[in-house]
């Protein structure tokens, strides 16, 4: 039982909790306490030192929006944002309830009356914005993966294709999202002219910019993974006389999955980083826009609220990375995965 939990935790990269499980299972308490002190104590001390340094320095820096906020101010802002979210939700619920009551009254008076439920149009809360950001980054990441993995496989299989693609990859890889954005915006405006309201233009622009910037690591890693498949596996395919697509799906893709997922993991990280910049400029209602709006707003709370966003972005990025590590381990079949 304890071993199963430990395996699961180390599989997910949650190594912090392993000593606690061991302690509960009754393994040598002295060792476990020492482990707890090293894996948890040291990071906590480091964080405390950082917080102290931060609050000391922040107090020294005066901006036009007041002092740079320290940890306490940021914590309070975070709480305010959550309260605002809760308040907005209550308002929304009340709005729908009022409509329903009104509709019920209308129907009681005249059973044939046409009733409508109007959508709530309040401003998005912080949580909504996080949701939008996540949805946008996953859309962009999905587009990037759908382009990068097939091209990467073809590049890895054929060195002439690789030679052909290589200069393009090398040139486009370092381009900043900020350079792509105006072009993407114009192209999206020109091509996406329907008004069916399925997607906002700002959402499409952000997602495509994310895709353009994050597809390169996946492409390069997939190509590398496919090119470095163990020659024995290819020999197996040859001896069995597998057809082209059978070879791809039964040998090439499974064999290069660890590499592909390493690439996807880097891509998702890059995508998340790029997304904030893209949302700022494209005005997609996510965390990027939140930061930008707070900056433009310029109230005495703005800096603290932006710092809340900074930590949110960091934590979500960290979580996304952990999720990808789990996938990566899942497809590595006993080979080691670097999870740093």
């Amino acid at each position: 039982m304890a071993n199963k939990i430990i395996n699961f935790l180390s599989f997910c990269g949650l190594t912090w909790f392993i000593p606690f499980v061991r302690l509960c299972a009754g393994e040598n308490p002295k060792d476990q306490v020492r482990d707890i002190i090293t894996v948890i104590g040291i990071p906590i001390i480091a964080i405390l030192i950082f917080l102290g340094f931060w609050s000391f320095t922040a107090a020294q820096i005066k901006t036009s929006l007041g002092n740079l906020p320290g940890p306490v101010a940021v914590m309070e802002s975070g709480r305010t944002l959550m309260d605002e979210h809760a308040a907005e939700r209550t308002k929304e619920q009340a709005f729908y309830e009022r409509q329903e009551q009104r509709n019920a009254k209308k129907l009681a008076k005249n059973p044939g009356a046409e009733v409508k439920i109007r959508k709530y149009t309040g401003k998005p809360t912080y949580i909504d914005q996080i949701g939008t950001s996540l949805f946008t980054v996953f859309t962009g990441f999905l587009i990037a993966s759908l382009i990068a993995v097939p091209i990467g496989v073809i590049c890895g299989l054929n060195k002439y294709v690789m030679t052909a693609f290589n200069p393009l990859i090398q040139i486009f890889k370092p381009v900043s999202p900020l350079a792509w954005l105006p072009i993407v915006t114009m192209v999206v405006s020109a091509l996406y002219t329907t008004t069916d309201g399925w997607f906002e233009k700002s959402f499409i622009t952000s997602a495509i910019t994310v895709a353009l910037c994050s597809l390169w690591p996946s492409l390069i890693n997939t190509a590398l993974g496919v090119a470095s498949i163990d020659k024995d596996y290819i020999n197996v395919a040859k001896v069995l006389k597998l057809g082209f697509f059978e070879k791809i799906f039964k040998i090439v893709l499974p064999a290069s999955l660890p590499y592909i997922f390493t690439g996807l993991r880097i891509s998702l990280g890059v995508g998340w980083m790029v997304l904030i910049a893209a949302e700022m400029l494209a005005q997609n209602p996510g965390l990027g826009k939140f930061v930008w709006d707070e900056f433009q707003n310029g109230s005495s709370h703005s800096l603290a609220r932006i710092l809340v966003a900074v930590f949110t972005i960091g934590l979500i990025g960290f979580m996304l990375d952990r999720i990808m590590v789990v996938f990566q381990k899942f497809v590595s079949f006993g080979q080691d995965v670097v999870s740093a």
Partner: peptide
Amino acid sequence: TGPGPDRGVVFQNYSLLPWL
């Protein structure tokens, strides 16, 4: 003229597919 299943090969390093 080429490899084929009429000649079964057992490779030195097994060459089993680790995902199967």
